[in-house]
Design a protein around this nucleic acid. Structure first.
Ligand SMILES: [Zn+2]
Length: 135
DNA sequence: GGGATTTGACCACCA
DNA sequence: GTGGTGGTCAAATCC
């Protein structure tokens, strides 16, 4: 899909396969343990998403993760934004596109989320905002 | 082996 | 015409 050239910087290098940790800032969904600090509630809509990218947006100074629906006929995309400074857990979830398949089982969590979204759209209160612009 | 996830790089669009 | 951002893909890695 990528015509042109295929540069390969990491061709014969990087291997060792040992020690790769140190400082990783992954989107830990779920509360870690009883620590009273890790409270990142990833909005689980009940669908399966496959992460295909993660980048830092300078515009808002926040990290953005890109997810795509796993269904073939489904062109739905999910975009998750979160900040890493301090402890302000501001998780913003933006859904793009629509699903071609029915939403398996019912999810009461989504209802709760929808309620919140409808309640306040952009308030500074650790929450998730969802938006579905075009079809 | 398959599937999922990660990181980096390239590309397209806009100022 | 160049620079920059945002967005996507591709390869590699891990389970
Ligand atoms: Zn879907």
């Amino acid at each position: 899909m990528n015509p042109g050239v295929k540069i390969f910087p990491t061709a014969t290098a990087a291997r060792a396969g040992a020690s790769m940790e140190g400082e990783e800032e992954e989107v830990e969904t779920r509360e870690e343990h009883d620590s009273g600090t890790a409270r990142l509630v990833l909005p689980e809509d009940g669908y399966e998403w496959r992460k295909y990218g993660q980048k830092y947006i300078q515009n808002i100074r926040k990290w953005r993760s890109y997810f795509r629906c796993q269904k073939q006929n489904c062109m739905a995309k999910k975009r998750v934004e979160w900040s890493t400074s301090g402890e302000a857990d501001d998780v913003r979830v933006v859904y793009d596109g629509m699903h071609n398949h029915s939403q398996g089982p019912s999810n009461r969590k989504q209802y709760d989320l929808l309620s919140q979204v409808l309640r306040d759209q952009s308030t500074s209160s650790s929450s998730s905002s969802s938006s579905f612009p075009l079809s």
